[in-house]
Amino acid sequence: MKVLVAVKRVIDYNVKVRVKPDNTGVDLANVKMAMNPFCEIAVEEAVRLKEKGVASEIVVVSIGPKACQEQIRTALALGADRGIHIETDEEVQSLEAAKLLKSVVEKEEPKLVILGKQSIDSDNNQTGQMLAALTGMGQGTFASEVVVEGDKVNVTREVDGGLMTVALNLPAVVTTDLRLNEPRYASLPNIMKAKKKPLDSMSPADLGVELAPRLSTLKVEAPAARQAGVKVADVAELVDKLKNEAKVI
């Protein structure tokens, strides 16, 4: 079966972000970018499904500026078969991303669509669910285990009280949690091979989707800084401070 994986280019997770002085956003100039960690897990899961003989073809898609092709190439180096780049320099919000992905799903007709549960920049946690709603598919969100059985997929989900397993009819949408797998590294030969794999580029207009953002960001600020604390010498002083100064125990 065909598996579609959506990946996003985001600021590297180790970078300490800086808010721009004019409060219009976060400074992304000359900052290290990478594939969103949850998307890496999605790619890895698709590759594992292929290695198990469950998936026959892996198509990876990314939406954004030209530079997103780096992340698509990374996914190809990890084992995806071909890439689709939906190129736009505009801001793409979750609902629009879901609509673009819906068009791709209608063209490609994958049996399984795998996305990360959230991107670590906007922290929205929406796109997979919106795509599932728009395509009328079931959704296995926050997945820590994915087992395809016949025309169903069993997804074990990380929920507030523990774990929950649901069975979804295929085609379905799955969003990955961190514990689903441990992504592999791309080897140099595979990175070289990935350069020859097909990568189609198209615009939102080619897919018949008009970008119409519904949310406008009025300002972005740095969070209130915490007051610098004190170091205590020993446990006795700590307990004393908590009881008599902070009065929290």
């Binding site: 929406q126 926050f142 519904r214 949310l215």
Partner: peptide, 23 residues
């Protein structure tokens, strides 16, 4: 914004063709 809300609310937003404001 627990795991239940995060799961079904974006679906609601998409069905109503509106954006969602998270968390």
């Amino acid at each position: 914004a627990g795991t239940v809300g995060k799961d079904f609310m974006p679906r609601v937003a998409a069905l109503l063709d509106v954006a969602q404001v998270s968390d």
